[in-house]
Amino acid sequence: MKEDQGPYRPLSYFQLMEVSLRELLVEKGIVTEEQVNAAVEDMRKRTPERGAKVVARAWVDPEYKKRLLENGTKACEELGLDVPALKLVAVENTPQVHNAIVCTLCSCYPRMLLGIPPEWYKSRNYRSRMVREPRAVLAEFGLKIPDRIQIRVHDSTADMRYIVIPMRPAGTEGWSEERLAGLVNRDSMIGVAVPKGPND
């Protein structure tokens, strides 16, 4: 890996295992360095902008939103986003319901729409506490959810992946899809933040 990883630190157990396994696979001719790099590049190319595009379309097109909530995978394909080997479930925030996503067993994440997960998403702290005391965890992200709003935590334990469709901020009437997409960040699609509009 040529990326800048900051000051020198010895490799951790798992980093060492990754390097050893990769070198062994290359040495035995099972994969090439080029293939490994291409796969890493492919992962890097996926960014939360893909998810934001889906959310913005759902905001401007109620029929699209309906299809997205019915079958997330198909609705993404409509926008030319391939979501390989993935069953996507879109969950919608409303004035009554706030959704948030976690994977308590490992770190399942809608990578094809949001890219590489942030470190905190994979942390034991987030994974164990998000199902146990979601309101306290959200407050630590700066998001205070009033008690009258129901919190739905989605634990992606098996084959499905989740994306939150946040509420469209007030004061964005008449905005283009592209401009709207600019409001939608990664955290709001995980459910630990909400998009800020011009009035916020």
């Binding site: 919190i151 935590v153 634990d155 098996a158 499905m160």
Partner: peptide, 19 residues
Amino acid sequence: DVWPDYNGSAADVVEVEIF
């Protein structure tokens, strides 16, 4: 029902995929 001492709203839920 999951956490007897849960301190959020009584309406809060958690959804889990189960075989």
